[in-house]
Design a protein around this nucleic acid. Structure first.
Lengths: 348, 348
DNA sequence: TGTTAGCACTCGATACAAGTGAGTGCTAAT
DNA sequence: ATTAGCACTCACTTGTATCGAGTGCTAACA
């Protein structure tokens, strides 16, 4: 069944009003406030139809109407107007994200905090999944007689290191040889390949004379690689939910915060979402504890290859137009910033 | 005015009961529950005295008595019995904190999460202040033609690095020379000395021929040092406050969470506390937004030198005996773990 | 003189009844 | 097809009565 022009207009007014006020809206108020040239009675009839179609609900008989998830979906897909960010906000975003970009992690963290500030919602961001990141360089460095530092550098410019305590002294030649052999063996392979394809197990036989040294180093090497693969989650604006009427209930707020604080689980949810700007509204979310939240995520790109995500989570009643615009602008900025400087593609 | 033996016994019973139940307790209930051989009326008289002395308060005329901050202080100082941790918990703590100690940060984070788990409170931990940490080693490592990695190693075994993009290619000899000169200059100096005593500014003149290289490197070097000095704050059990009756009020919970989330500010508060086991109760806290919380902190030691802190924050009504024991046991364990393995003192 | 029983009083909490008002759904007139 | 009119619904507010845990005071007691 198709929606008439007038029904759409009414629905748009209801959704728009409810997003702002969080109060159920009645026919009389709607007609007065939005001056749509029809009487409350007519609006009531239309509302009744819309309710039957599943776009509106009724907290109780004598209350106004409230949009359903389905209504939000329609609003997001068809009714919502393009929201243009104020120049001022654009400037703030650009400034914060392009200045002082020493570390990707720091920038992503800034992006999350910026996002929560601008939207007044709870924001999050994850660092790129490093699985396709290729190893470039392995180096063992002497520190003192029984300590070496293992340094791993990837094609995208990520650097990671660990100090390793050895039970016996080592020789510098061995160490330097080891750096060369391992670099030779693993250069160009992706981090996950190195870990999963059992390549690591074989490298012992390559340099038989150093069995003992290898034994200590291997678990550290694996550990470091695993750490590099770990996706990091940043969040901000956690207390923003308290200013949202929907979460004035202590029990609801608790559930929300507990859900958010299960970082591992939440990271998984984010990783498994499709790329691009994805909006899931209320019961569209697979996870049932999120069925009265909306989740918006978008992707940013590092070097055109690695993909990270960021977004917001909040009540289904949120300013979708504003929020999506802000997220889009932020991800665009990050991708732009890390287009060239993130890796070794500077000369291309 | 001195407190009679009997007054102390009554006070102890009230504090103990209130810590468990969070309900004001009346004379009749107290006499029945604790079987102290005196009638409710007598207890009432004693209570009245205790109230006059400032140890008890009265939410309203017809309610039971509630301990004041002063009462908690007396309880903590004199009445509280030594609480012995169950062997089981000791085992859990020892296991978690001594296994897999690759990084100090990770261990401290584990300690915080353990602490909140065992106390059901909000826990926190900060990494040691690195100001007295001495520099041991500086190394510049070639990555590709325009990228080098700066690696800084301290006496306590902390390793930090940054990738630096250069605008011009560099020569490997220069790099290696730079490593040697800088190590020679800064070895044994504390990190804060290197930063604050303007030593950095002078090092340009040391190696005149490499002015250009230095120009790019210096800000990165300073930046890295500053990062190393930064104290990191970990927190856990944030949602635990929701199970505490005192914070069933949404407004209170909000204030609490917002206070906690101002990481910078909260870190400063922690840093400025004295060493050792410090308990501040309610209005003993200088920060007025913490005047109905109790804060307990204790210190752990790395290598006998560097000092970090951890503790809990919660309502003044908390199980001080249990909590302090747990914190003590955890800090002892950390200090033990990092007594020898944290630095190069292995052979002493 | 310290302790205790008795009793009037306080006050938050709970329950219930009546009144209010925003909003609906239906019907009949336009 | 639209609208005015009207009875009805129901959350919310206000007012009143009741309950009970607990206090403070007084007088009696050991």
């Amino acid at each position: 069944m198709d929606l008439s022009e007038r029904k759409l207009r009414i629905l748009q007014a209801i959704v728009g009003d409810f997003i702002r006020s969080a109060e159920p809206i009645g026919s009389r108020t709607l007609s007065k406030k939005y001056d749509m040239g029809i009487s409350p009675a007519t609006i009531r009839n239309e509302m009744s139809d819309l309710e039957e179609m599943g776009f509106l609900t009724h907290p109780h008989t004598s209350a106004g109407r409230v949009p359903s998830d389905k209504a939000y979906r329609l609003y997001v897909n068809n009714l919502m107007k393009q929201y243009e960010l104020p120049e001022e906000e654009k400037k703030i975003i650009a400034e914060k994200l392009t200045k002082n970009v020493t570390e990707l992690e720091k920038t992503i963290q800034h992006a999350a905090s910026l996002l929560s500030e601008l939207t007044n919602l709870t924001s999050f961001a994850i660092t790129p999944n490093q699985e396709v990141n290729q190893l470039k360089y392995i180096n063992f460095l002497p520190v003192d007689e029984r300590t070496v530092v293992l340094m791993i550098v990837t094609e995208s410019g990520k650097v990671s290191n660990t100090a390793i305590k050895l039970s016996n002294p080592y020789s510098e030649e061995h160490l330097s040889l080891l750096s060369k052999v391992m670099t030779y063996n693993y250069k160009g392979k992706t981090l996950s390949d190195i870990l999963t394809l059992d390549i690591i197990k074989n490298f012992e036989s390559d340099i038989e004379s150093m069995g003992k040294l290898m034994e200590t180093i291997r678990p550290n090497f694996i550990n470091t690689l695993e750490n590099m693969l770990n996706v990091e989650l940043f969040m901000d604006g956690l207390t923003n939910i308290f200013s949202i009427p929907e979460y004035n209930d202590i029990e609801k707020a608790k559930v929300f915060l507990e859900m958010i604080h299960q970082k591992k689980h939440f990271t998984d949810v984010l990783i498994n979402r499709d790329n691009g700007m994805i909006i899931t509204i209320g019961n569209e979310n697979k996870e049932d504890y999120m069925r009265d939240c909306s989740l918006i995520t978008a992707t940013y790109h590092i070097n055109g290859k690695l993909v990270g995500k960021l977004g917001v989570i909040g009540p289904t009643r949120m300013k979708y137009d504003e929020v999506t615009s802000i997220i889009q602008y932020i991800t665009d900025n990050i991708s732009q910033t890390f287009k060239l400087t993130g890796g070794d593609k500077e000369d291309e």
